[in-house]
Design a binder for these strands. Structure first.
Length: 585
DNA sequence: GCCGTTTTCGGCCCGACTGTTTTCAGTCG
């Protein structure tokens, strides 16, 4: 049983308790515990170790016992009993926006509705509108939400909505009444998956800004519109919320809406400890009445002009938005230990790009030109190897023709260089698609898995470790193989992969393609600790997709990486040596 | 159900918007 499976069970218990109308704080305890176990970074090798579980903040005696039972027997009596009280399909009703536990409970008790299909039927026959607390409008909204749900999941890859988000940002930035503009929320934290866009604007003319927003050409429909908050659906299908505040409120709102939730709770609790209350508008003294007798006089409230002032007010260094996940950033900010995160400008080159030779859409020359236009000093070409039939994998002959073409082109460049490589398939047994004699003639080798994806955890891990043990394999590409919102990771033991990478001197790719963003940011602190080096690659199949590097930078920052952790921050003069280091060991 | 540099009992983040109400409950973030 994995941590996330345990978290899913706790989450489900929370939902079922909500349906039962249980004490809201008990419900929150389960939801919190689910989050706690999922995000817990430390070692819990044994989920049956009740004592260790209980030490995780948010998990107490009762929940620790339940986790233990779950880990030991694979099931949980308490959950079985809860499930027995409701039809199984009822949980899917929670995926409809606008429906929460109270409404679902009413639908179930009054109309015996327990599935989306039944709900749609009841809406169409007008029975929902007749329920107390519901009405014609609510019924129509439910119909629309069901329709929306079938059109898209409500979750988007960061890259799918980045263009709209940036367009809105720049359009507001150019608006004369918008004094400050930022896209906050999970977008600003550079989460790989976002489900809405949070736009924040400081202004003296809220009505004008709101009007401009709901009338924007990217807006498909308006969901809600009030004096300080409006919500719309954009053309891509993503929901976008606008918050309008004053300039004085802006830094508080920016921090508040950048989140995440756990980060905000910690920030507020730090304010409370200093005798203040923090919300999205201001830092204010605590109300004097409540249990104030023993209390020492509240500290003077400092002036806050930007986010850095706010963090300073609670005795913290500034925390970059990407780190605001309550994932160790508070401890680091207290000890002046927030690293100087990598920036886009630090990247000097990149590897793992495709050309017309395999399944890319541009020539060597076009890829090189695009790389130079981005200010890069070098670009590594790595087309697919021969066994990738569907991706037009190249054979030995084509590969050497490309190497020759690259060597020839390099004579023309000034201050720029192409490196000749290959994206070599890792075969089922961990051997490589080309023999060492061929690989040794290349500047670098990207190794990756594209076949036999269903191997067991032990087999898949062993396969990758064996590939990394090859001295000519410079880097391991998209290590988990996940396709965001589409395909889960292969079954692999990532710490074992990282250990092998550290031992063999193999770089691990941070694949910057927005559908991958693999290796995931959550693993990079561990990778770094083990001494593993990162390489940020776009896996570009078109020249313009080299720009995906920007997504990779966001994830690298989110993974606490600095420029010294990322090999392709090395300048041209040093990267060549670094590429040879492993094979010369 | 969890938690404690205010507390082992009594809190637990809280504000915005909508729709159905006629002062508020429900949902969301």
């Amino acid at each position: 049983m994995t941590k996330s499976e345990v978290a899913a069970v706790l989450e489900e218990i929370g939902t079922l308790l909500e349906l039962k109308g249980e004490n809201p704080f008990k419900i929150r305890a389960y939801v919190n515990a689910a989050r706690a176990i999922e995000t817990f970074g430390g070692n819990i090798s044994d989920l049956q170790d009740e004592e260790a579980l209980g030490k995780i903040p948010g998990i107490g005696k009762s929940i620790a016992l339940k986790i233990k039972e779950l880990a030991a027997t694979g099931s949980l009596k308490y959950l079985q009993e809860l499930r027995a009280e409701f039809p199984a399909a009822i949980l899917e009703l929670f995926s409809i926006s606008g429906l929460g536990a109270k409404k679902i409970k009413a639908l179930y008790e009054k109309l015996q509705i327990s599935s989306i299909e039944q709900l749609l039927k009841a809406c169409e026959t007008g029975r929902v509108a007749e329920l107390p607390g519901f009405g014609e409008t609510t019924q129509a909204k439910i119909c629309k939400a069901i329709e929306e749900r079938t059109r898209h999941s409500g979750y988007f890859q960061f890259g799918q909505i980045a263009h709209e988000a940036e367009t809105l940002r720049s359009d507001f930035a150019a608006h004369p009444d918008a004094l400050h503009t930022e896209v906050a929320g999970s977008y600003r934290r550079r989460k790989e998956i976002v489900h809405d866009v949070d736009l924040l604007v400081a202004t003296k003319k809220p009505e004008t800004i709101t009007k401009f927003f709901v009338g924007h050409s990217l807006v498909e429909s308006v969901i809600a519109q009030g004096p300080t908050k409006s919500s719309v659906r954009l053309r891509s299908g993503v929901q976008c919320d606008l918050r309008v505040v004053s300039t004085a409120e802006y830094p508080f709102a920016l921090a508040y809406f950048t989140g995440n939730k756990e980060h905000n709770i910690e920030l507020r609790s730090r304010a409370l400890k200093r005798g203040w209350t923090l919300n999205e508008y201001r830092l204010a003294p605590l109300p004097v009445d409540a249990k104030a007798k023993k209390k020492k006089p509240a500290n003077k409230i400092p002036k806050v002009r930007d986010e850095a002032d706010l963090y300073r007010a609670v005795d913290l260094d500034f925390i970059p938005p990407e780190l605001r996940e309550n994932w160790g950033e508070f401890e680091a900010a207290e000890k002046n230990a927030i690293p100087k995160l990598i920036e886009k400008e630090n990247l000097r080159g990149t590897f793992h790009c495709h050309t017309l030779a395999s399944d890319g859409h541009n020539s060597l020359e076009e890829m090189a030109e695009a790389a130079q236009a981005l200010g890069l000093e070098y670009l590594g070409i790595a087309d697919h190897s021969r066994s990738q039939i569907q991706a037009h994998g190249i054979d030995e002959k084509k590969l050497f023709a490309q190497v020759a073409a690259i060597r020839k082109l390099n004579k023309k460049f000034d201050g720029f260089r192409l490196f000749a490589g290959v994206e070599c398939d890792i075969l089922r047994d961990g051997s490589l698609d080309f023999p060492d004699e061929i690989l040794s003639q290349l500047d670098f080798v990207v190794a990756s898995v594209h076949s036999a994806l269903g191997l067991s955890e032990a087999e898949m891990t062993g396969r990758m470790v064996r590939a990394m043990e090859n001295p000519f394999v410079t880097m391991l590409a998209h290590p988990t193989g996940r396709l965001l919102l589409k395909r889960e990771s292969y079954q692999i033991i990532i710490p074992a992969i990282l250990d092998a990478a550290a031992r063999t001197g193999t770089w691990i790719e941070l694949n910057a393609a927005p559908k991958r963003l693999d290796l995931d940011w959550r693993w990079w602190p561990m990778a770094k600790q083990k001494g593993v080096k990162c390489v940020i690659n776009p896996d570009a199949h078109r020249a313009e997709r080299l720009q995906d590097l920007w997504f990779g930078i966001g994830i690298a920052r989110k993974g606490w990486l600095t420029k010294t952790d990322v090999m392709n921050c090395l300048p041209l003069g040093k990267i060549e040596h670094a590429l040879r280091a492993k094979r010369e060991r």
